[in-house]
Design a protein around this nucleic acid. Structure first.
Lengths: 272, 272
DNA sequence: CGGCTGTTTGACTTGTATCAATTTGAGTGG
DNA sequence: CCACTCAAATTGATACAAGTCAAACAGCCG
């Protein structure tokens, strides 16, 4: 794990906007060729013809301010979103109207995969840090509009990857104690940041303790205490939302429940 | 919720085998047109030409005996599977080699979606009740072999549906007490059985208490106690693996955490 | 500066895991 | 058909991780 000497915030603009006014979503011209997330783009393997068509259809990136919605639960489904910069959480609602966070997304992530096949979005996407996003109209994948097999393959790959991630998430929500959940969350986030070329050993969390607890199935107080314990163990340094990772490998080992350090070795059994 | 007067086991053979020997997987001729799961099939919306090609590629259904593997973790990925009859669990392994169940599947379900895009299966599929399965070579979806947009659309739909189910599963693993998890599990299973035209108010579970606990993030003893409590509340009758559902709607309400019955109303808070 | 929100820490409570003992059921073989 | 064996399920007693309640503290912003 090597990090850049300078910490780059994921709110940095990867794409220079034409205009610079913040607020409600605005349009910017953004040729796909110049996009910083080209390597994660669905269109990365397209032939020139198909790529041009794709590029024309998505050639606009929206700037979204913190707190705004990319889309709302039960809005009609019309597009996927790729995050170019910033961060986003996606959430459902329970019966009492509480948010249930189902995803925490960083640049390079594709959003709204869970909406495919339905008429409306089954979740909302809320901007945590000012974002640039690329809006990908779903009709691009519609047989009536286009039939680029490569584009389809790329999409199904991404969906399968998302499914695998969900499996992992659901598995470690089952029995792992609080510290392990948090450790794995941090290690996983660090890895994802690294794979997108961000600093992975120090970053600012855009999620509150409450949101982290929500996502990990813990009370916010428990999250706070777990942060303290991980810090006491020397694995991280935490000051409010600023995190420094000292030993990601150890975090991962702890997160996988293979911890053998200290007196607190007991694992909760899963009965098989 | 209406059920058939006669309980039909999901081990019933929907497709008559040519030969009848049980044991290691054998081949049976099975024209897709006569398939009982045609309505759930990926090929259901294909034009005649594409359907024929599809049918030729998958025109064989395997019989698999209880305890056998449809595929194993880290086997090379080559095919998806549709369950025609019987039931199957899919599971990953943790570091200690324990099973972690990520799915419980009944006829009409499509398996191995999570393997797409990788070289090998990320999970194993184990037969719980003798099965007939349809093996769908993944090359059917490969651009080099075919480029039927409809088939792709169907696949991505199924994947998105699986993703939504996983979101729901992960959400209710977070904070819901044992009784709610079990209630929702039973109600959901009942609904799925109903949608596949099986008896939904009485069935035999092919999962053990241990497996259910594993899937729901509970100890097997807790599962057993929850069964007893649901029975005491008059919602179900349970005798070992045989379940009778008396009030599915109430089970669902309970499962969603909106319970107001009895003294045990307290919900575990999720802190928002 | 207040007012507000988010975070930390402490004290107490509780749901469920764990350990342990019993009962039931299925399968096997005489 | 009845014993025997083994796995699965039930039920009870106890312990502990994490939830809840509460209070103090730190940042942030108009």
């Amino acid at each position: 794990m090597q990090s850049n000497p300078v910490v780059r915030s994921i709110t940095n603009r990867f794409v220079k906007p034409v205009s610079d006014q913040l607020g409600s979503p605005e349009l910017y011209s953004k040729p796909c060729d110049a996009c910083f997330q080209k390597s994660n783009c669905l269109a990365r393997s397209l032939e020139l013809d198909d790529f041009r068509r794709y590029s024309r259809a998505v050639s606009q990136s929206k700037r979204m301010a913190k707190g705004h919605y990319l889309y709302r639960l039960s809005d009609p489904f019309e597009a996927l979103f790729m995050i170019l910069s910033g961060s986003v959480k996606s959430c459902r609602l329970d019966e009492e109207g509480n948010e249930l966070i189902v995803g925490f997304h960083i640049p390079g992530d594709l959003l709204a995969l869970d909406a495919i096949g339905g008429r409306s979005y089954p979740s909302s996407a809320i901007v945590l840090e000012d974002c640039f996003v690329c809006k990908i109209p779903y009709r691009l994948f519609d047989e009536r509009f286009s039939d680029s097999p490569r584009l389809h393959s790329e999409l199904i790959r991404q969906a399968a990857q998302a499914l695998r991630s969900e499996h992992l998430h659901s598995v470690f929500l089952r029995k792992n104690p609080a510290d392990e959940r948090l450790a794995l969350f941090l290690a996983d986030l660090s890895r994802r940041l690294e794979s997108r070329n961000y600093a992975c050993d120090r970053f600012d969390l855009s999620l509150s303790r409450r949101d982290i607890g929500n996502y990990l199935g813990l009370a916010l107080e428990t999250v706070s205490r777990s942060f303290s314990r991980l810090q006491d163990a020397g694995l991280i340094t935490v000051r409010h939302r600023h995190i420094v990772i000292h030993d990601r490998q150890h975090l991962e080992i702890l997160g996988r429940g293979c911890a053998e350090s200290g007196p607190n070795v007991r694992r909760v059994q899963c009965n098989g």
